[in-house]
């Protein structure tokens, strides 16, 4: 890709705490913002949004890449876009629904566990105060 072509494109990085999932130049981004689907083209106004579980679509010269993201944030300014998310899976078009289901499932499980652990901790705390 020539320097001139790069200038016309958006440079996007998709980062999770565990690894850098995607890095590259794209023409168009569609993302699952908390208030609905959002499309970003070059020269879009600077924006910071919250993401919900969904599919991030990156289009470069007609080729689309789909990345399942699990909550997080999206920042765009100038020609640089940054997706910060807890978990991201690169997926195919056919697997989009399955990816969302998987992200939701994992997410729910962790939520359940934390809720359960919290309840247990609260119960133990209650018992120790009773004992005293």
């Amino acid at each position: 890709m020539s320097e001139k072509e790069k200038k016309e494109k958006i440079r996007i990085t998709v980062i999770t705490p565990e690894k850098r999932v995607f890095e590259g130049y794209v023409d168009y981004i569609s993302l699952p913002s908390i208030s609905g689907s959002l499309g970003i083209l070059p020269k879009h106004m600077p924006i910071i949004t919250k993401l919900k579980i969904g599919i991030l679509k990156l289009v470069n010269e007609g080729n689309a890449t789909y990345i399942g993201v699990c909550r997080g944030h999206f920042e765009f300014f100038g020609k640089i876009a940054r997706v910060l998310t807890e978990r991201a899976i690169i997926t195919a078009y056919e697997d989009r629904q399955a990816t969302i289901a998987e992200l939701k499932k994992k997410h729910d499980i962790t939520q359940e566990i934390t809720e359960e652990t919290k309840k247990v901790i609260q119960a133990i705390a209650g018992l120790t105060t009773l004992k005293k």
């Binding site: 908390i34 106004m45 910071i48």
Partner: peptide, 21 residues
């Protein structure tokens, strides 16, 4: 120096979820 940002849903909410993260 940068132009102002659009925040979705709101600045307070974005910051509120960003700081724990």
């Amino acid at each position: 120096l940068r132009p102002e940002f659009i925040y979705d849903p709101s600045l307070q909410e974005v910051l509120g979820s960003m700081l724990p993260e």
